[in-house]
Design a protein around this nucleic acid. Structure first.
Lengths: 212, 212
DNA sequence: ACCTGAACACCGTTCAAGT
DNA sequence: ACCTGAACACCGTTCAAGT
């Protein structure tokens, strides 16, 4: 169908085969990652799912690592959006906002564990060699930092170095996410249990360990 | 040399070729992992380094995953020993012990990042399918838990669910270790900086976030 | 410009043999 | 029992072509 004969070299019209092969490869790769995990993600399979020869991806990605970087980048974007949205929808107090960040992070981890692992897997990607990826991967930290700075300014949080607090909180959330998806915590049960332990964990940090 | 003709079917004597091929493979595999990372660890290379044909490993490991499991197991053993030793050498108070645990964990991470990643990589190992690996991987949690229970009993720590505290602290330490080896934190500098941020992070948790 | 088939070097795994 | 060489199906990557 669609027998238009316009001159639109932009998109659609199927210029050759695909028109937007790069995006098709990205989508196919992400699907395979989510469905089968990183071990099942090979370039030839991605090409097959996108309906092109095993060699076509090299027109859009220098090598397999470049595709993995693009997939990781999209993952960090989605994670950042989720966190931003969670902060926006949370009540106007620091604990509620930090809890919202934690829940958003853990939900992403549970829904797409293979994607989260891939995003952080130095196994296959040297983040430092990909400046854009490096930059976007820092977004979570910056958003946590801002919430903490606001909380201190409003007098809700103890006044100490907010960067140290942000490192602590992000380590906490990221570590919890990784341990959960690796079945490394005593907690059983699915999403509800994971969300409960997330809230408990953040509150435990909030209250501290030292006896009052 | 060594022209003994004793009857010692135990070890040495070089029964066929190696005598202790399983251990030789484990050592070779761990070396490659530490030197080249998980991506560079293939079975044929392990066999080559151990001086046997590419097929010999299958006498001792069912498949590549079985070798990875054995390497991960040894890693968890070493980590548990380091933590146990750190606790034993620390002063008799809770904060000092928790700091010692954190430092031991982060030192392991920095010295052998590829090994730590491999130990926790659900990428290649389904921990639940290997009960012994699953059991040893929980050691860190149990040691943290014990320190916290003792701390509460001595009245040094706030009395709340020690399991929740242990989950929080282990998430914190593990997350910090992972973020550090993935160059995901603002901190630059090597080991000294990493140790400093570890202490700061644990103290930040110890003190809590809530304004007193 | 974008895509293809053939080819190369490699890997995990299996199998029929050798001692 | 323990080890080997040959073989199979696969992968990442490259290259000479095709439109």
């Amino acid at each position: 169908m669609q027998e238009k004969t316009e001159l639109q070299p932009k998109k659609a019209d199927k210029p050759y085969h695909h028109g937007d092969l790069r995006n098709a490869l990205l989508t196919a790769g992400t699907e395979i990652l989510v469905e089968e995990g990183l071990a099942g993600l090979d370039l030839r399979k991605v090409a097959r799912r996108a309906g092109v020869s095993h060699n076509a991806p090299y027109r859009h990605f220098a090598d397999k690592t470049a595709l993995l970087v693009a997939i990781a980048h999209a993952g960090f974007e989605e994670l950042a959006e989720r966190i931003q949205s969670a902060i926006g929808n949370a009540p106007e107090n620091s604990l509620a906002r930090l809890e919202a960040i934690g829940l958003a992070y853990i939900k992403f981890a549970i829904e797409k564990p293979a994607h989260l692992r891939e995003m952080f897997s130095g196994l296959t990607i040297r983040r430092i060699e990909y400046p854009e990826l490096y930059a976007i991967s820092k977004q979570s930290f910056l958003m946590v930092l801002e919430v903490l700075q606001n909380g201190q300014a409003r007098g809700e949080l103890v006044a100490s170095n907010p960067e140290d607090q942000a490192v602590t909180l992000l380590s906490l959330i990221h570590g919890l996410a990784m341990l959960l998806i690796e079945d490394q915590l005593p907690e059983k049960g699915g999403r509800a249990a994971a969300e409960q332990i997330t809230l408990t964990t953040i509150q435990t940090f909030y209250n501290g360990l030292a006896r009052k």
